[in-house]
Nucleic acid binder design. Structure first.
Length: 753
DNA sequence: AGCACGCCGACT
DNA sequence: GTCGGCGTGCTC
């Protein structure tokens, strides 16, 4: 006998409360209200969208009735729900919020209270239901044989008719694109009975306009072929199989992704490709569209809500076999998932730091394990934790040690800049820039700091210009004649005298890309110079404009921040100069050496053209530091060995697990009290649980005050993940902070295998 | 996260 | 005298 439909259901609501809710289902909705669908429910004084988890327990509390079932079919499968439950439990975030994050934005209905002017002039509060993305429809035109007595119209109407005659049918946007605004003509054609129009559901496709030429798989070199063979073998076992694809820059990792995915598709499975940032998706999508004729969907935050909803629906319906997207694409509703590729797995942008604080790189491994898929982490500079997992045998190792066509690694010259802080270009770099310009080569200059000068200091009284909201110095931007806070965007006009003592002897110290640009003008006035950083790429297509300039040879020297180190191909670049390799080395973070090594290695990989290895000059104030030494000698294994020794000694990941509790608020004293209260509770719980977690703090966050909020943090270090998780969960259940103090729990992303 | 209730400062 | 600031509590 079939189970009778539940009359009581458990519902997850997207609010910051760590509990689910139970509702009654009226008889008329009983059959429809199944797990995975959305329901509109009364919640407090408003109506909100919730997610049905399954049958509920008749609790003691009085239950409200659901108002409506919003979906005909479930939005998520039981397997997806299991994954999202894992995410909620692991990151200590309410399941309803996790579900909302995983689903396309803007689909939910909520009631809002609004002040509405009444007829008599007074105002009344009115409840309005808002939200809910709809499917988009478009008119499709089709030509008919002309009815008797109707002559073919002249002018634009006739042109359109001829155009339609040559094809089955055409959507309105295509006609508009070819003929410009033509609504009156189309209306006339319909009235004459020469065309018919039918509304049809369409997808808002971000790549609609483009046509793609096909290409065929490239021939692999021996390393690529060996890597592919292992991926193919793993794919055929249909078991969870995680790999690190460690390939030097230019070694052809993407071609391995493409062919591994082709194999997965041939087995009737699907593929998910994660990329670190939106700017890199178009070029990758084009490469995929040229190779594959199956459905490819794109998911990232740069799409409009409508586009994202449509891409999501295509995937949900099984119309896309490949999904390419940024971190949130880890939640893509792909079924029969065969492979997850995480490109540039070391990139920090895989970490979501608002709302649900997940790490997509880690979740790829979790989801891959649940779905029995191959997980392929690709990088030229893998995370230290990934490298360690390889050594422990938890991650398969695929190596591409050579560049395609056996292009040699660039020759790197390390220049000791100690005692020469005032000089932007030491003689070797200045000479190399001039030589390269003379022979018509392109150069890249890398400095990971934007603006002109890092800070303003008074030579008279020692005053340093700082942000009133954040504990950082203000960076001087010459073009805009202002000092900016790079954390909160606060700015003030550049003062001409010291704001403290009014002395005119103020100095601008520390250099950024803007100043490097100026100094290149002075050094090489005939060079065509451009700069690429957040200040010059802010507008729409700002990225593309500069990249095109370089590609078309209109730029001799490109100066940039880490933007130029990542992903983009600069095929004509024969010289790379690192102005100061140390800018990122001294930030107070145990990962700063790792980040510096990765950044330098990535930027070195930009050198080389055709079959010629490029030339690289690295200026450094710390030429003996192991991160810089190993980066310039391309000694990846050497760096990891030293970094792992350092991590072992200091007790950082992968030899310990971390969590951070961030407390913030506008009242410093209250936040500090909250932090102390939290630390005391942690100590108590630690004793009770006999936990081996180390509790550091409370301490003020590195930035103390950020964007006007006071910040304190408590760091937790544990030898085992389970230990850490038990303590933090217990803490979260027990803590009762004043409402002004906001608590954010950051479970540090470390290896998940 | 909203949303309303509630209790203290500067305004028509 | 009220408008409105945000501190506090609640949501099946």
């Amino acid at each position: 006998m079939p189970a009778s439909p539940p009359t009581i259901i458990e519902v997850a609501i997207p609010v910051r409360i760590d509990q689910t809710f139970t509702y009654r289902v009226p008889e008329r909705l009983a059959v429809q209200a199944s797990a995975g669908k959305r329901v509109l429910v009364p919640f407090g004084r408003r109506k909100v969208t919730g997610y049905v988890l399954g049958p509920g327990d008749a609790a003691a509390a009085e239950l409200k009735e659901i108002i409506e079932v919003l979906d005909a079919e479930p939005l998520i499968t039981p397997a997806e729900l299991a994954f999202l439950r894992w995410v909620a439990a692991y990151y200590l975030f309410p399941l309803g919020e996790v579900l909302k994050t995983a689903l396309p934005a803007g689909i939910n209905l909520t009631s809002r209270k609004r002040q509405v002017a009444a007829a008599d002039g007074s105002s009344v509060t009115e409840e309005v239901l808002a939200g809910g993305k709809r499917v988009k429809t478009e008119l499709f035109y089709r030509s008919l044989s002309a009815p008797a007595g109707v002559t073919q119209p002249r002018g634009r109407g006739g042109e359109i008719l001829t155009f339609l005659g040559g094809m089955e049918e055409a959507p309105a946007h295509l006609i508009r694109q070819r003929f410009g605004p033509c609504a009156p003509q189309l209306k006339r054609l319909r009235e004459l009975g020469l065309v018919t129009a039918a509304a049809r559901e369409v997808y808002r496709d971000p790549f609609r306009e483009e046509v793609f030429e096909h290409d065929t798989p490239h021939i692999l070199n021996d390393d690529q072929a060996a890597a592919l063979a292992r991926l193919v073998a793993a794919g055929d076992t249909a078991a969870f199989a995680p790999f690190l694809l460690h390939g030097v820059t230019g070694s052809g990792k993407t071609e391995v992704y493409l062919q591994a995915i082709a194999h997965v598709l041939s087995r009737g499975k699907t593929a998910l490709v994660l990329v670190p940032e939106i700017a890199l998706t178009p070029q990758l999508v084009r490469r995929f569209k040229r190779r594959f004729r199956c459905g490819i969907a794109v998911l990232h935050s740069g799409l409009s809500d409508g586009e994202r909803f449509d891409e999501w629906r295509r995937i949900r319906r099984g119309e896309a076999e490949i999904v390419i997207g940024a971190r949130s694409a880890i939640f893509a509703p792909l079924e029969r998932l065969g492979i997850i590729v995480v490109d540039e797995e070391h990139e920090g942008s895989y970490k979501q730091s608002e709302g649900v604080r997940y790490h997509a790189r880690d979740l790829a491994l979790v989801r891959g394990k649940m779905d029995k898929a191959v997980v392929l982490l690709g990088s030229a500079t893998p995370l230290v934790t990934s490298f360690h997992a390889v050594r422990e045998g938890r991650l398969g190792y695929l190596e591409l040690p050579r560049r395609v066509r056996d292009l040699p690694m660039p020759a790197v010259e390390l220049v000791d800049a100690r005692g020469k802080r005032g000089e932007t270009f030491l003689p070797p770099l200045a000479a190399a820039l001039a030589e390269n310009l003379a022979v018509g080569g392109q150069s890249l200059l890398f400095l990971n700091r934007r603006g002109f000068a890092t800070y303003l200091v008074c030579q008279e009284c020692g005053f340093v210009l700082r942000c009133p909201n954040c504990a950082v110095t203000l960076t001087y931007h010459r073009r805009r004649e202002r000092h900016f806070c790079h954390y909160c965007d606060y700015s003030i006009p550049a003062p001409s005298v010291c704001p403290g003592c009014e002395s005119p002897s103020i100095g601008l110290l520390g250099r950024g890309t803007e100043r490097v640009e100026e100094e290149v003008w002075e050094l090489l006035p005939e060079a065509r110079v451009s700069r690429m950083d957040r200040d010059t790429t802010s507008g729409k297509g700002g990225h593309a404009r500069i990249l095109r300039g370089v590609a078309e040879g209109r730029i001799d020297i490109l100066i940039g921040t880490q933007m130029i180190a990542k992903g983009h191909d600069f095929p004509g670049v024969t010289l790379v100069g690192v102005v100061s390799a140390d800018a990122t080395l001294n930030i107070p973070d145990f990962r700063s050496a790792e980040r510096t090594f990765q950044l330098i290695t990535q930027v070195l990989g930009r050198a080389g053209r055709g079959d010629a290895a490029g030339r690289v000059i690295v200026q450094s104030l710390a030429p003996d530091h192991y991160a810089i030494r190993h980066a310039v000698s391309h000694d990846v294994a050497g760096f990891y060995a030293e970094e792992l020794a350092f991590r072992r000694e200091t007790g950082y990941p992968p030899f310990a697990f971390l969590a951070a509790l961030h407390l913030s608020g506008t009242n410093g004293a209250v936040v500090e009290q909250g932090a102390e209260q939290a630390a005391r509770l942690l100590q108590q719980l630690k004793g009770r649980l006999r936990s081996r977690v180390e509790i550091l703090g409370p301490v003020t966050s590195p930035l103390g005050k950020l964007r006007g909020r006071f910040r304190w943090q408590i760091l937790l270090k544990a030898p085992a993940r389970s230990d850490l998780h038990r303590l933090v969960s217990a803490f979260r259940g027990a803590i009762d902070l004043p409402a002004q103090v906001r608590l954010v729990i950051d479970i540090d992303p470390v290896e998940m295998m």
